[in-house]
Amino acid sequence: MSSSPRSDDAALLSGGPEEFGRFYLRHEAHVLRFFIRRVRGLDTAADLCAETFARALEHRRSFDPRRGEGRAWLFGIARHVLAESLAKGRVLDETRVRLEFEPLVIDDDSLERLSTLADDVAMQALRELPGEQREAVEARVLEDRAYGELAVTLECSESVVRQRVSRGLRSIRDRLDGGAP
């Protein structure tokens, strides 16, 4: 019988250090994507992620699987960390200080991996656009083609191309800023 993610997360959060490490590995990419979409700077996203998991560790016993999945609980913490950081104008580190965590050193390899994740976030948002908008955004933004030229290629008026590009970019922006985690 396979266990549900909810009970898995509960087991991991009520276990020992290794189990919490597995909980981190399970949700790391999702939390990083959440922050990469919302803040500028991979370093900042990584630091916010660290503070989120530090809080999760501190409060892991309060996780109640009856109230939702582990990921939803984690994103609740992430939203709080982000909101408080924005309100204070700095990345929070109070929990890490309290738990005596050593500073997170991000080496070049980690940055490289994070940048692939960041590219993935933006390209994923582009891929999810409706076909016509995606085509227009790719041609205009990535290939830097003129609106007049695109109108001929796409067999529509220039104003229609502008509208598609504008809507496509707005959708991407909305997705990166406030979309689902």
Binding site: G21, Y24, E28, F53, E102, V105
Partner: peptide
């Protein structure tokens, strides 16, 4: 893992 250092710190 994207941040192995963080994984170690957390464990």
């Amino acid at each position: 893992t994207y941040l192995p250092e963080l994984h170690r710190i957390l464990v």
